[in-house]
């Protein structure tokens, strides 16, 4: 099977004034459809940077990145945005819901930037509600994020990530702001989604969370230190 993600010698450096920080120094790996991968490593190792490159939000300084057969290095901002919208779903540590929108509107948000109109508005709303049901939000469609608990917010964020039926879900420390019970629930939800065929890439520094994945890539000093299947 063709990999959905393939990285070849990806590097990334940041320049602040005259200081150049080399964050990624040559990362290569491939991820196949239906995998559940945890990217682990100490804080500051460059995990988030890597995830944002995978998410087409940042461009690598060098190297080649193919997403679903497309070399994204050559794409315009417009085309990259379309890749994010159609193929990627983001889940963030601090949820990043838009506070003035209801849960349902937050889930619908990715459809506003969709360029092909496969589904109509009514169908979008129906799907958004189904997804909120799927993640277990118990019909709180019209609640504002401020009226939801952390775990519930993260469920809404996951529903939003699923809205445009992406190839890959990218989650950056999705349990970082949750208590242990809520963390477990969110990890279980991600596991369930993976069992239903979703490809999930999860960034975490928490070994308990990382060990729930089926494959673990450890990053240290900007390089892949280990890449092992979990038991």
């Amino acid at each position: 099977m063709r990999p959905v993600i393939s990285l070849e010698d990806i590097t990334k450096h940041y320049q602040t004034g005259k200081v150049i920080t080399e964050v990624l120094k040559g990362i290569s790996f491939s991820i196949h459809p239906k995998e559940f991968v945890a990217i682990m490593g100490p804080s500051g190792a460059g995990k988030s940077t890597l995830l944002y490159i995978l998410g087409c939000l940042a461009r690598p300084s060098s190297g080649r990145y193919e997403l679903d057969g497309v070399d994204v290095g050559t794409l315009s901002d417009e085309a990259l945005s379309r890749q994010r919208n159609a193929k990627l779903g983001f889940v963030f540590q601090s949820f990043h819901l838009i506070p003035q929108y209801s849960a349902l509107e937050n889930v619908l948000l990715p459809t506003f930037y969709r360029k092909d109109r496969k589904r109509g508005q009514k169908a979008d709303r129906r799907r958004a509600k189904e997804l909120l049901d799927l993640v277990g939000l118990d019909a709180r469609y019209h609640y504002r994020p401020g009226e939801l608990s952390g775990g519930q917010k993260q469920r809404v964020a996951i529903a939003r990530a699923l809205m445009n039926d992406p190839e890959v879900i990218l989650a950056d420390e999705p349990t970082g702001n949750l208590d242990s019970r809520q963390s477990e629930e969110i990890v279980r939800l991600l596991k369930e989604l993976n069992e239903r065929g979703r490809t999930i890439i999860l960034v975490t520094h928490d070994p308990d969370v990382g060990s729930q994945a089926r494959r673990m890539i450890t990053i240290r000093d900007g390089l892949v230190k280990s890449d092992t299947p979990c038991s």
Binding site: D77, S81, F92, F112
Partner: peptide, 16 residues
């Protein structure tokens, strides 16, 4: 800015 960042992540282009 945060709101803008979120919308960008969800697929909003600069033009959007």
């Amino acid at each position: 800015r945060v709101e803008i960042g979120i919308k960008r992540a969800l697929g909003a282009s600069r033009r959007d």
